[in-house]
Design a binder for these strands. Structure first.
Length: 878
RNA sequence: GGGUGCAUAGCUCAAUUGGCAGAGCGCUUCCCUUACAAGGAAGAUGUUGCAGGUUCGAGUCCUGCUGUGCCCACCA
């Protein structure tokens, strides 16, 4: 070829160049395919604008880009819609941190200024993650990039809210919700993490009006101030006498009833329960059953309020200490014990969540959940791996109404206005003032997952009937981590079905977490964070992608061994070097494609058979989302079969063969390389595309690998006989190498061989040369039938072939006898096993015929080999 | 408490409907042979966590157990 291949792959130079080239030619766009091509669409899980690239991003990009590139090569109009998420809480925290560093706060600067600062933040950092996704080779359509707070998407959010409201599925009300006192907002159940912690269990006396007391245990003495009952089990004899009487709240002497409810566990603590419906979810339910008042004794920042009497104004934890001390002084305390308990903490920030009564907006979720469950049950949506379907159903069966309002500044405003006359208007736009009534908007914003739930269709223009929406919705595969199955995937399914009447995608592929080598979650405090950028800088993007794709199985966590990245960097180099070999010295007029199967020599029939099996297997595996196994098979084929054997064998026709033989070998080499690059492209887009430039292409073939046709498997090249015969020849080569090693024949020393060809005379006559190339046999001769074995020689057998190596000076009869004895023992073991199997009538009767046949062939081959060696032993061992 | 995943070579992981347990890394020895020392050749390393069961045949399917992770859940 005209262009010479550089010595090595310069990924630093190539990655940027190729990415620009792809993008500038519009290859990432679905329009690159014919107008009538079937679409294949993935909505990218939008990273947070606050984020910096981590291994989770690297994994999802590797997987989704592989899917997209695979489908694109299969002729689909592939569209990968990218974008970012405003991530309301996460971003707000960052901006608040920034404000704090300037000595101010969200409250002090006011809503407008806060929003201005948040947008500045978005513009500054939102692009960073996008640039990093590009470095990973993400072939998404950047012209269709979206942000959840873009005008169009914001409009979709308002539209969705208004529709749900009009359908009676959104309501507002005071409810007990998970409250984050630091952020001063409600958070959803999913945003609360429950960790076991060692706390204390406080035992104290609840005085009863008219004398006596009930001992009660609590983990949170400060909530005593909000108690509205003491509950005991109806059958508990200890406390029968008090049921119906009043107890007095310690320190503030508020009378509350003693009630009986079988919810109380007699065995736990004292068997009596203080009921604080304003600050505990269980107690709230209990209070509903007994018509108890619900007292909220805390402010939004979790300091105690006026209802707490002398404790008003104290922080909840300070109050805990104070009230306990006061109760002790008053003789009401019994004891304090260490106690393992579950403490709810905010997913973001980690502070202790306080259940609080507040006015919030909710979605009545049951009707949406029902459709979502049905879609999976009916098979309209398939989850990979399948086991997550169970988790999905379980969650839907137990779903609670979704609290969608957040008391945050950054996010989608709730489209509700309150009139000065006390009216309430739900509308996408501000109602016009009339009759002196003015309107003020609702202060709250929506849960960030509300807009995320619309993502697959809002990014395509919904609720406008855009051409994109018509052509590319529903999407095909939704690929994301199993950790956001509930947060995100389910919400998309519910909203998609509800608003578009269609499942937003037909397949959900879930990947696992990327952990460190020893399986620990990556964390800054542990110092075990693997930075993908660091490895991309050192080894390039391809090795990182290949490693992530081949390190695990669907749905399971990956313990990332970074040494694999280095190994795969060597694999990239290996591919480069084998390409260099294949492309070196190709004639300009080389015929396209491989010769017909009938025109091939044995090694070529073998490698072409292996290649076409590989194409079939890789295609099948990728279709089944088995990217790991598919990648490993390509690896094993390229390095273990093509490079180690075929390339070495091809050197004979290349260097010593006739022109026809040489050209045939070149065509096979080129075909294998060409096909391998196609198969590998979804895994390693950069090195494969860069090499593609140097390959001669048939007329009409794409100049860009990214658009080239996916490798097709042609069964005409399947050749079991060639594979079997070649396997024997390889065994012989290995055997000769072993003999050389064992007898310490210098590697450079050429030896001679006599070959008893058995039934393989034809193969050995045509390709006996492989022994010269692969194990340094200078000359060899095929023996006639019945010809006696040469004196002082070592024997290597495979099938019914035997190679004799006359190594007079090296051979010691005793050693050779021992070696052969070991060989034959090994063979006998295997023969016995096989004979045993074949002697079993049940096996013959019940095993699959091809399995039986395989065993028969195996026995035949092993027996022939053993016979050769035995025969030899009679001569050597004496 | 319910559900679910994992357990295979020293380490990280494979094993496509049950059909000869493999790879990479690391380790030992040798080799700079004209694609590649970022390479090549040879080698050692396994009761597939334990105990049963189904089957001609189990790493794979079933039951129980042990260890470990995750998800869900209202014991103060």
């Amino acid at each position: 070829m005209t262009q010479a291949l550089p010595k090595n792959f310069d990924f630093k130079e190539a990655e940027d160049r190729l990415y620009r080239w792809w993008e500038s030619h519009g290859y990432f766009k679905p329009e690159a395919a014919p107008a009538d091509a079937e679409p294949f669409v993935i909505s990218m899980p939008p990273p947070n604008v606050t984020g910096a690239l981590h291994t989770g991003h690297a994994l999802f990009v590797s997987l989704e880009d592989a899917m997209i590139r695979y489908q694109r090569m299969n002729g689909k109009a592939a569209l990968w819609v990218p974008g970012t998420d405003h991530a309301s809480i996460a971003t707000q925290l960052q901006v608040e941190k920034l404000l704090a560093s300037e000595g101010t706060s969200r409250e002090q600067v006011g809503r407008d200024e806060f929003l201005r600062r948040a947008w500045t933040w978005k513009h500054t950092y939102g692009g960073r993650i996008i640039d990093q996704l590009r470095r990973l080779g993400a072939s998404c359509d950047w012209d269709r990039e979206r942000f959840t707070m873009d005008d169009g998407l914001s409009d979709a959010v308002l539209e969705a809210f208004v529709r749900l409201y009009d359908q009676g599925l959104i309501y507002r009300g005071p409810r007990l919700v998970n409250w984050s006192p630091g952020l001063k907002t409600a958070v959803s159940d999913l945003e609360v993490e429950r960790e076991e912690e060692i706390g204390k269990l406080y035992f104290f006396r609840y005085p009863i009006e008219g004398g006596g007391f009930i001992p009660v245990a609590t983990t949170r003495p400060e909530t005593i101030l909000g108690d509205t009952a003491v509950a005991v089990h109806p059958d508990d004899e200890r406390y029968q006498q008090y049921i119906g009487k009043n107890a007095l709240v310690p320190m503030i002497d508020r009378p509350i009833p003693v009630i009986a409810d079988s919810y109380v566990t007699r065995e736990f603590g004292t068997g009596a329960l203080k009921v604080t419906p304003g600050h505990d979810f269980n107690d709230y339910e209990l209070a509903q059953r007994h018509n108890l008042p619900v007292l909220s004794v805390m402010n939004r920042d979790a300091t105690l309020n006026a209802l707490a009497g002398q404790y008003a104004g104290l922080d909840r934890f300070v109050c805990r200490e104070r009230i306990w001390a006061d109760m002790t002084a008053a003789g009401l305390t019994i004891e304090v014990r260490d106690h393992t308990m579950v403490v709810p903490r905010a997913e973001r920030g980690g502070e202790v969540i306080e259940p609080m009564i507040s006015e919030q907006w909710f979605i009545r979720i049951a009707p949406l959940a029902e459709k979502a469950a049905q879609a999976v049950r009916d098979g309209h949506i398939r989850i990979v791996p399948e086991r997550f379907e169970k988790v999905y159903f379980h969650w839907l069966d137990n779903i609670e109404d979704w609290c969608i309002s957040r008391q945050l500044g950054w996010g989608h405003r709730i489209p509700v206005w309150y009139g000065s006359d006390g009216s309430r208007v739900v509308s996408k736009t501000t109602p016009a003032a009339k009759d002196g009534v003015t309107y003020t908007p609702d202060d709250d914003v929506l849960d960030t997952w509300f807009s995320a739930g619309l993502w697959p269709f809002s990014t395509l223009g919904w609720d406008k009937q855009t051409p994109d929406l018509a052509r590319f919705y529903p999407t095909d595969v939704l690929e994301t981590g199993y950790d956001i199955l509930f947060f995100w995937v389910l919400r998309m399914v519910m909203f998609g079905l509800w608003f578009t009447d269609e499942a937003p995608f037909h397949t959900v592929y879930l990947h696992g977490l990327v952990r460190d080598k020893s399986g620990r979650k990556m964390s800054k405090t542990l110092g075990n964070v693997i930075d993908p950028l660091e490895y991309m800088n050192q080894y390039g993007t391809d090795p990182l992608r290949f490693t992530l794709l081949t390190s695990g199985t669907p749905g399971n966590d990956i313990n990332l061994d970074t040494e694999r990245i280095e190994r795969n960097w060597r694999f990239v180099n290996k591919i480069w070097q084998m390409s260099s070999f294949v492309l070196g010295g190709l004639p300009d007029d080389l015929e396209a494609g491989a010769p017909a199967p009938s025109a091939l020599d044995l090694p070529s029939r073998w490698i072409m058979s292996r290649l076409h099996h590989l194409s079939a297997d890789v295609t099948r595996l990728i279709d089944a989302y088995q990217f790991g196994e598919a990648g490993r098979q390509i690896d094993e084929f390229l390095w273990g079969e093509f490079a180690d054997w075929y390339i070495e064998i091809s050197k004979y026709p290349l260097y010593n063969g006739s022109d026809a033989e040489k050209r045939a070998a070149q065509r096979v080499l080129l075909t294998v390389l060409d096909t391998a690059l196609r198969l590998l492209h979804p895994y390693m887009p950069f090195v494969t595309e860069d090499l593609w430039r140097y390959l001669p292409h048939a007329p009409g073939e794409s100049e860009a690998l990214i658009l080239a046709r996916w490798a097709q498997s042609d069964p005409a090249y399947f050749d079991d006989a060639a594979e079997a015969e070649m396997t024997l020849l390889i065994d012989l080569v290995r055997g000769i190498r072993i003999v050389r090693t064992q007898y310490e024949v210098e590697p450079g020393r050429k030896i001679t061989a006599l070959i008893q060809p058995g039934t393989h005379r034809a193969a050995l006559e045509s390709c006996g040369y492989i022994f010269s190339r692969l194990c340094n046999v200078a000359d060899y001769r095929l023996m006639t039938d019945g010809e006696a074995a040469p004196e002082n020689s070592a024997a290597v057998a495979a099938g019914d072939m035997t190679v004799f190596l006359p190594l007079a000076t090296f051979i010691d009869a005793t050693a050779e006898c021992e070696r052969l004895t070991r060989e034959v023992e090994k063979l006998d073991e295997q023969i016995a096993r096989t004979q045993n199997m074949l002697g079993n009538e049940q096996f013959i009767a019940r095993a699959r015929p091809d399995v039986v046949e395989k065993e028969r062939a195996r026995l035949e081959s092993l027996s022939a080999t053993a016979a050769q060696i035995r025969d030899r032993m009679t001569g050597v061992c004496g």
